[in-house]
């Protein structure tokens, strides 16, 4: 009960009790809230990236990508990477923590593509209203996608445009989130 009760919004008492049991809960991997699809199922999130290679050419991609990530469980692993990143940003996690994950994602992308620079974006795929679907709007309509810049990273892992800056901008209400000209599907 302690794990679920400690998830925000939680009382000070819950937090006190949780802090006592935290080492055990974390060591045994029992520190869960079990908030499945709560408080709302909500929109989903993807990470889009553009990589600049040594010869000047560019490659792009995104994850999760159901055409590349198979079987479905593997797809879901990638899906959770982008979903958890968004959850961290929304939950007010420290910018250093968010930045560390984004930088790690960038290092991985640069390693796989043998790239020089990588720019990462967090894409939000909004859910269509039922009336729009009734009117024939497809689920992957480009107007349903928004994205925000996470940062640009070079091959050495040096951050040029920090994700902290983007995160802070979102918190200030000056969200750099913008529509995407094309969807990803």
């Amino acid at each position: 009960m302690i794990g679920p009760c400690s998830v925000a919004p939680a009382s000070a008492l819950s937090h006190r009790v949780w802090s006592v049991y935290r080492p055990y809960l974390q060591a045994a991997y029992l520190n869960h809230g079990y908030h499945f699809f709560a408080p709302e199922p909500g929109p989903s999130h993807l990470v889009r990236y553009e990589v600049e290679l040594a010869d000047g050419s560019r490659q792009s991609g995104f994850f999760p990508d159901r055409t590349r990530h198979r079987p479905r469980l593997l797809y879901h692993r990638y899906f959770m990477l982008s979903e958890h990143l968004n959850a961290l940003m929304d939950s007010g996690a420290a910018p250093e923590v968010v930045g560390a994950y984004v930088a790690s994602f960038a290092r991985r992308i640069l390693h796989v593509h043998r790239g020089q620079r990588a720019t990462l974006y967090l894409m939000r795929h909004l859910l269509p209203e039922p009336a729009a679907v009734l009117a024939g709007k497809p689920l992957d309509e480009p107007s349903l996608y928004r994205e925000r810049l996470l940062g640009t990273f070079d091959a050495g892992g040096m951050v040029e445009q920090t994700s902290q800056a983007a995160t802070a901008a979102v918190r200030r209400g000056a969200s750099p989130e913008r529509p995407v000209s094309q969807g990803v599907q």
């Binding site: 679920p4 998830v7 919004p9 809230g33 079990y34 908030h35 499945f36 699809f37 709560a38 408080p39 709302e40 199922p41 909500g42 929109p43 989903s44 795929h125 859910l127 269509p128 039922p130 679907v133 689920l139 992957d140 599907q185």
Partner: peptide
Amino acid sequence: SKLQGPSWWNGTALWQAAANL
């Protein structure tokens, strides 16, 4: 935890899940 979300009260939550590509 679902009771914190309006869509679980107004009955549209499963639509959100179904419409999530």
